[in-house]
Simulated assay, not measured.
Amino acid sequence: MINEPSPSLLERLELQASERGLLLRLQVGRPLGLWSLRLVVACPGPNGTAQLLGEMKGWAYGTSNGLQLDTMRVVPQSPAGVGDLVWAATMAWALEATPCSRARLLAIRDDERQHSRLVRYFRQRGFQLERDVAAALWDLPLRMVWGGAGALMSGSVEQVLERSLRSWRQSAA
């Protein structure tokens, strides 16, 4: 008898998504020794089409602080839990496929009210403020990477994963 390895957390999340009628797909590239990531959650449609409900884009490099998150989006009319699934699957991938134990992102400061909402949302996910990225010369590289000014935030991949899994499971109840 052959012992089959137990499925990874990412595989289990894909199965759970499928059980809720959702598609979870991950596209990973390895340009120049980096990992590029695009994770999507969609709803299957007619004739093999799919309606995008949520996505995360980012990249990682081979250090513990290497997960950089760029785009997180959830369509407003998405079913409950889609955002939690996007976060959980992204963090599961980072832990299973990269050496990353911390993630960074920039809460863009386009408008002060929206910026405050983003900072609050990311704090609820487990991110903490590192520093403000503004107009200083030393901020230029970060502004070029993330496309603007804002609050640079970081968090433990494991902690973000735990919070997201808890919310994902609660959304099924």
Score class of each variant (00 low, 15 high):
residue 131 R to E: 05
residue 142 L to H: 02
residue 131 R to F: 03
residue 154 S to A: 07
residue 163 R to L: 08
residue 143 R to S: 05
residue 143 R to P: 07
residue 123 R to H: 13
residue 143 R to Q: 13
residue 126 G to C: 14
residue 125 R to V: 02
residue 151 A to H: 06
residue 158 E to I: 04
residue 123 R to Y: 07
residue 165 L to T: 03
residue 162 E to I: 00
residue 152 L to R: 01
residue 138 W to L: 08
residue 147 G to P: 11
residue 144 M to A: 14
residue 129 L to A: 10
residue 137 L to Q: 10
residue 160 V to G: 04
residue 168 W to K: 10
residue 150 G to K: 12
residue 127 F to W: 10
residue 146 W to R: 08
residue 139 D to H: 06
residue 160 V to H: 04
residue 132 D to T: 10
residue 144 M to T: 10
residue 122 F to K: 12
residue 135 A to F: 01
residue 145 V to K: 09
residue 126 G to L: 11
residue 165 L to I: 14
residue 168 W to T: 08
residue 148 G to N: 14
residue 166 R to Y: 09
residue 154 S to D: 06
residue 130 E to D: 14
residue 148 G to S: 13
residue 168 W to E: 10
residue 148 G to Q: 13
residue 130 E to W: 01
residue 131 R to A: 06
residue 124 Q to P: 08
residue 149 A to Y: 00
residue 146 W to T: 06
residue 137 L to T: 07
residue 125 R to M: 10
residue 154 S to Q: 06
residue 157 V to P: 06
residue 166 R to F: 11
residue 150 G to A: 11
residue 159 Q to V: 15
residue 166 R to K: 13
residue 146 W to S: 08
residue 167 S to R: 15
residue 169 R to Q: 15
residue 150 G to S: 12
residue 133 V to R: 04
residue 122 F to E: 09
residue 140 L to G: 09
residue 122 F to H: 15
residue 130 E to Q: 09
residue 148 G to V: 14
residue 129 L to K: 09
residue 144 M to V: 10
residue 144 M to K: 14
residue 162 E to F: 01
residue 163 R to Y: 02
residue 130 E to A: 03
residue 154 S to I: 00
residue 144 M to E: 14
residue 162 E to Q: 11
residue 146 W to V: 06
residue 141 P to H: 00
residue 157 V to I: 04
residue 133 V to E: 02
residue 145 V to R: 15
residue 129 L to E: 14
residue 154 S to P: 02
residue 149 A to I: 06
residue 122 F to A: 07
residue 157 V to Q: 03
residue 155 G to Y: 02
residue 129 L to M: 12
residue 135 A to Q: 05
residue 127 F to I: 07
residue 169 R to G: 06
residue 158 E to V: 08
residue 125 R to W: 05
residue 163 R to N: 09
residue 128 Q to G: 15
residue 158 E to H: 12
residue 141 P to T: 00
residue 149 A to M: 07
residue 164 S to E: 02
residue 131 R to N: 03
residue 132 D to W: 11
residue 132 D to S: 14
residue 130 E to C: 04
residue 157 V to H: 03
residue 169 R to V: 12
residue 124 Q to G: 15
residue 160 V to E: 03
residue 158 E to G: 14
residue 127 F to G: 10
residue 137 L to S: 09
residue 168 W to Y: 11
residue 153 M to D: 02
residue 129 L to N: 07
residue 157 V to T: 04
residue 167 S to E: 15
residue 152 L to A: 00
residue 165 L to N: 03
residue 163 R to E: 01
residue 128 Q to H: 15
residue 142 L to Q: 06
residue 157 V to S: 01
residue 168 W to V: 09
residue 140 L to S: 12
residue 152 L to G: 01
residue 137 L to A: 11
residue 154 S to H: 09
residue 123 R to E: 15
residue 145 V to C: 02
residue 146 W to E: 08
residue 135 A to T: 05
residue 154 S to E: 05
residue 155 G to H: 01
residue 143 R to M: 07
residue 140 L to K: 13
residue 162 E to N: 05
residue 142 L to R: 05
residue 147 G to K: 08
residue 151 A to E: 08
residue 162 E to M: 02
residue 149 A to E: 13
residue 169 R to A: 14
residue 166 R to E: 13
residue 169 R to C: 09
residue 122 F to N: 13
residue 143 R to H: 04
residue 153 M to E: 02
residue 169 R to T: 12
residue 134 A to M: 15
